[in-house]
Design a protein around this nucleic acid. Sequence first.
DNA 1: ACACCCATGTAAAGGGTTACATGATTTG
DNA 2: CAAATCATGTAACCCTTTACATGGGTGT
Lengths: 176, 176
Amino acid sequence: MPQKRILPYVILGILEKGDATGKQITDEFKYEIGEFWKSSHSQIYPELKHMLTDGWIDSYQKEDNDKEIYYRPTNLGKEIIADWLATPVAKLPVSKDLFSLKVFFIKRADDPRLKTLIANQKKLVSQNLAHLKKREAELFDTAEKINHNYGHYLILQRAISRQENQLAWLDQLTVC
Amino acid sequence: MPQKRILPYVILGILEKGDATGKQITDEFKYEIGEFWKSSHSQIYPELKHMLTDGWIDSYQKEDNDKEIYYRPTNLGKEIIADWLATPVAKLPVSKDLFSLKVFFIKRADDPRLKTLIANQKKLVSQNLAHLKKREAELFDTAEKINHNYGHYLILQRAISRQENQLAWLDQLTVC
DNA sequence: ACACCCATGTAAAGGGTTACATGATTTG
DNA sequence: CAAATCATGTAACCCTTTACATGGGTGT
């Protein structure tokens, strides 16, 4: 009845790149996937348990550390993620964007709040854009790296393109 | 502790344009705000009660219909929405985009699933773009209409620009 | 051995979606 | 006036975030 369950698929996707602990999966959300999906450890650990009981993944520990638990996809899990990736997306997401929402409610072009909102948004988008370009330079400085993580590369390009588009739009507004 | 409460502000924003029933507010989400914020009646009716007890809005009924309940913002409510609109957004939203997520996990450029995902996304984005342009033609065919709902106009422009950008990006991919 | 940090785990409180329910109003 | 529709309302369920808790490493 509630929202569609996405997290386990994301986790499977992460584990396809190599076994990982809950902590490592959590960090993946912080640094890589974080641009377009968020999750936190308090969601991830229970989800890992769930996936274990469903047989999507199994776990093991390394002898030198009693604490860390490594996870890897089972054959079932590999099947599931492969199917999921092959299934096209049914509908476009709604971008829950507070900036758009606030602008929407401002009726007149000369409302001073509009200027404030736009200036602020410009700052946020520029910062994010700078960050994305830094990531691009760090992660994809050779053709080989691009070829080995092509999807990741594409998505980073798209994120950059999107923010450039938004910035251009904001700039054009300021001129008027 | 949970997610930040946005709905009541959106409702206040809607009510600023004129008194409305729960049903009319619900429809607003379906047709106008729906591009960048979603809600459903089962969330809206309880929220209206909540806002009533907080004194953000009050309600009245019309004599010819026992069922419909009209809401309007109180002075407190008007203050609150004004403050909210004047407050700049603190951070960029994470666009929870399943398309990006799936692409992210595809490692090789020659993976056939990539083509499928992209073709499908193209279709979705084109449809949405067509819809947005239709809305633009319907709602903003005169300068006067633009000036009286400038924020709405801006947001529609931005939505269009964004989808055009995405489509260009998708097209460029297909060529390669 | 002690204190600190870190990986894992649990709890609490809303948000958000879908399904079901109810009573008024309109329609044939 | 019976049936269908409509506005409102309720319930169940999971998602998501923040805060708190625990017990194993690590460093001194």
